[in-house]
Structure formats: structure tokens, C-alpha cells
Simulated scan of single mutants.
Amino acid sequence: MMALLDLFHALGDPTRLRIVHLLRAMELAVGEIAQVVGQSQPRVSRHVRILVEAGVVERRKEGNWVFLALSRDENLTPLFALFGKVTPSDGEALWQAADLARLAAVRNDRARAADEYFTQHAEEWDAIRSLHISEGEVEAAMRSALSGEAIGHLLDIGTGTGRMIQLFGPEAERITAIDRSPDMLRLARAKLPGDTPDRYRLVMGDFTALPLENAEADTVIFHQVLHYAQAPETVIAEAARVLSDDGRLLIADFAPHQREDLRVRDQHARLGFSDAQIKTWFAAAGLDMVSERTLPGGELTVKIWLGRRHRAQVVPIDAAALKGRTA
């Protein structure tokens, strides 16, 4: 009874209802909600605390920011669906429309910040891209490697600017994207579509300790990320841990090279990988090498490796032998 009282008490306030409506549209920071509803951040924080304590809203810290999303508790799914089915009164319709208009402005602010960041760092990224085959051809090879099977739950490790979310997100059932940088996560978040926010989860984390349970992901992608790992074999093993049976791990990175400036200037811990290295690390992590593809072009050669998680082997029980041992 108390849980129900807490739940309905949490929703029994106009501002808190507005917050829930906004979070149905997208994940938001407390300051962004304050901007939309036109109230002070401390006041919004008090409303958020009530929603969190009732289990309606989840909070997630990301650097110095705190982001909010609707609870993923399946028991609350029918409740959130009700928000889209009940016809609002004329007054409610007006404030919903006004809130959504201001929410569009928040989206525009995110996109503007992303554009500014891209402009500031364009020369750095262009310098690396000029050394290898075009990104379009790399992405086409990645799509080809994963074609023919469902993506399922996609885990994008080191999402950066969120390009893999854009590329594979429409085909995935849901997406978890991880990056160590709050700035990068804000850039990626600016690219999320606004129609299905519940499919996307952007989380600050490290590839050596993924914030996922065992066998939770169906497809894992490392796009130009593995060369930042001091111990790539450990990172691959951690990715394999979260893969479901028959789940796939796709790695796009460089073949061995001698561009020492990338280590010094761009913090590359590894100057590329050989097929033998990846195959050995796959095997140690319980992955089969499904395919590898070489994309030469320029001073750096891009490689695409695809591994598959071993299906758990069930050893059949010999009933006769078992009877003999227990007789």
C-alpha cells in the first residue's frame, strides 16, 4: 500500500507530471528540465527527489552532470504508456505543447555545442582520417560484416561522437553506448532521435569494467577504440563477458604500423594489431574468429575483425552411467 501511496503522491503535482512528460521524450539533466519548466534548479531538484524516491525516475551521474530518465522497471511500463493514451484537457494540452517547444530549444543547444566541438577538433580528426581509407568505406565494411543477422541489444564501446549509434541504431532493439568522456557523451546525445528515447542508454564508463551484466548484449562494437587500451586482451575478454551466446564482437582498428606520432600526439597505446593477435585474444575470451577484412589505403591500413561468442555447451547426461554410480 505504501508503495502505491508514494507512487500516486509523486505524480500528484503538476510540475512533476510535466517532468514525466519531458522524460518520456528524452533523457535530461536537472538544469535542462529547469530551463524547460521555467523554475529554479533547487525547486526542480526537490521535485526530482520525490520522483526518484517513488521509483518513477532514475538518476545517473556523468562527470559533473546528473541525468534523469524514466524508470526501466517493467511494472511501471503500463503507467508510462497511459501518459500517451489519456487525452489532455485544453489547459494541459497548452503547457505540454509549450514544454515540448522549449525542449526543442534544449535539443538545438546540444546540437550547437556539438557543432562547435567538431569545428574546434576538425583538424585533428581530419589529420588521422587522411592517413587511411574513407570512413564511408570503413562503415560499409562494418555493415557488411554484421549483415544477415539481427543486431539485438547493441553495445557501442567508446561511442565518441555517436556515429555507430547513427549507423546501427535503427536496426537494433536497444542501444547502450559507453564512453569515459562526459563531453563525448553529450556530443553523442545530441544525435539521438527524439521518437524512441527509451531504446537508448548513454553511460559514462570504462572498457575494462563494463556496466553490464553477463550475457546482456547481443552485438558489441569497438570502432577505432582498441588502440587506446593498454591491455587489449583484457578489454576483449570484458566485452566477451557481456555477450550472449552466439553474440558478436566487431572491431574496426588499424593493422600494425610505425606512425609513432599517433602514440605521442593522439595517445594511441598500441600501433595497430595483427590478425594473429586478435585471433589469439578472441580464443582466450571464448570467441571464434568469424571473419577478417583488410581495407588498405594511405599510410594506415584499416582492419575489420568479427568474432562470435561460443554457445554454452550442454553435456548430455548418461542416465545409465549415472544409475550405475548411484546404485
Rank of each mutant, 00 (worst) to 15 (best):
I128K: 07
A237T: 13
A140E: 15
A101I: 08
A98V: 13
L322K: 08
D115G: 07
G84V: 03
V30Y: 04
R311D: 05
A145V: 06
L146Y: 06
V220E: 00
D99H: 02
K303Y: 04
K61D: 10
D318A: 12
R16Q: 03
M26K: 08
R60W: 05
P14K: 05
A111T: 10
E139I: 14
M289Q: 10
E139V: 15
A237Y: 05
D261V: 09
G148A: 08
W305E: 00
S144T: 13
D288V: 11
A215W: 04
R107A: 14
A240N: 02
H153L: 07
P193L: 09
L28D: 00
G136T: 12
E32L: 07
A269I: 04
R270L: 09
L210S: 03
L250D: 01
I128N: 02
E74A: 15
L70S: 02
L79M: 03
T119I: 07
A98I: 11
K191T: 14
I236K: 01
M1D: 09
G160F: 01
I251V: 15
D6R: 13
T77W: 08
R186Y: 09
Q277L: 08
L262E: 01
V36P: 01
P42A: 04
N75V: 09
L210V: 07
I221F: 02
A239D: 00
T161V: 11
D318K: 05
P296Q: 10
I175T: 14
D245W: 06
Q39D: 09
T159Q: 01
S45A: 15
L146A: 06
S274W: 05
Q313S: 10
G169S: 07
A114K: 10
L155R: 04
D13F: 10
L22I: 05
A140G: 10
A69N: 10
V138Y: 03
D73C: 04
A215S: 14
D90N: 07
A81H: 12
E260D: 13
I278F: 02
N108H: 11
A172R: 00
F222R: 04
R248W: 03
E92G: 09
L300S: 03
A113S: 14
A93Q: 12
A217N: 05
G152V: 04
P78M: 02
V290S: 01
